[in-house]
């Protein structure tokens, strides 16, 4: 051991394919620091979800992934799942579980034993996300936004080091989009979590990201603070739209004139 180990999540020359189709061809991610919200943007089929699944170990990936200086690429899925939680885009629909049980099962799944030592952590996660009043409600009876928050509670109750969120705001109304992202940002700061979230909505990315990473055709096209990275040239090149970026009430805002 020489210097203090680096802190955060990093990847180097990741190769992934979807069936026979290569999706990522040697993608490298800069160090994603804990306590900040990193947003992954890019057009459809850029490989955003695939990258998240590869980092989480849910899909085969060639290359190296470091978490806090440890190479976790070779770890078994169960071991990786203790440090890294991936939250899929789809919301559970068919389950008959109530909110409390759903979060408890997330805490207990993948580890041995039937103990209920996780009960207090479940209550704490629900409290932090403002879900205590819904604890007894069946998951299926909740709105999309509420279910998304339950998903976040399921991830947080596992006390991960890194949180990988696949479009956590899709199909939510404006209030819930911001509510979910506010909670994510707050937990990232409070728990010193590494957060990488895929977002489709560039307005949201501009509003809530500390850093954005732009994925295009399986390659990293740009990375940095959103105000610097997202500009007219990038939008023309990656998204093929004619757009302008300006300041609105002191914040960067986006106006799209049309497709190029």
């Amino acid at each position: 051991m020489n210097a203090a180990p680096e802190s955060g999540l990093r990847a180097e020359s990741l190769h992934m394919r979807y069936g026979a189709q290569p999706v990522l061809r040697g993608l490298s991610l800069p160090l994603l620091a804990p306590g900040r919200v990193h947003v992954l943007i890019g057009p459809n089929a850029a490989g955003k979800s695939t990258l998240l699944r590869g980092l989480a170990g849910l899909q085969a990936a060639r290359g190296r992934v470091w978490l806090d200086g440890e190479d976790i690429a070779g770890w078994l899925p169960a071991r990786r799942a203790r440090r890294l939680v991936y939250l899929p885009q789809s919301l559970p629909t068919r389950t008959g579980l109530a909110v409390f049980e759903a979060v408890l099962s997330a805490a207990m799944a993948g580890r041995g034993g039937q103990g209920e030592d996780a009960l207090a952590s479940v209550e704490s996660a629900l409290r932090r996300l403002g879900l205590l009043a819904l604890a007894d409600r069946p998951l299926a009876s909740l709105s999309g936004g509420q279910r998304q928050l339950v998903g976040l509670a399921q991830a947080l109750v596992r006390r991960p080091r890194a949180l990988l969120l696949d479009e956590p705001t899709s199909a939510l109304d404006l209030y819930h989009q911001h509510l979910v992202l506010d909670r994510v940002r707050h937990e990232a700061r409070a728990q010193d979590l590494v957060v990488l979230a895929v977002l489709h909505d560039l307005h949201l990315a501009l509003a809530c990201a500390d850093q954005v990473l732009v994925l295009d055709g399986g390659m990293l096209a740009a990375a940095g603070p959103p105000g610097q990275v997202i500009d007219a040239a990038l939008l023309a090149r990656v998204y093929r739209v004619d757009a302008a970026i300006g300041l609105l009430a002191g914040r960067p805002a986006l106006a799209v004139a049309g497709a190029l």
């Binding site: 849910l58 939680v85 899929p88 789809s90 579980l97 099962s105 799944a109 993948g110 399921q154």
Partner: peptide, 21 residues
């Protein structure tokens, strides 16, 4: 396996991301 099966009712992807084989 009851916890793993309970988690599986939330969907295969979600269960796998919680470390369920």
């Amino acid at each position: 396996q009851s916890w793993a099966m309970t988690a599986l009712t939330l969907g295969e992807d979600r269960a796998r991301s919680f470390g369920v084989p």
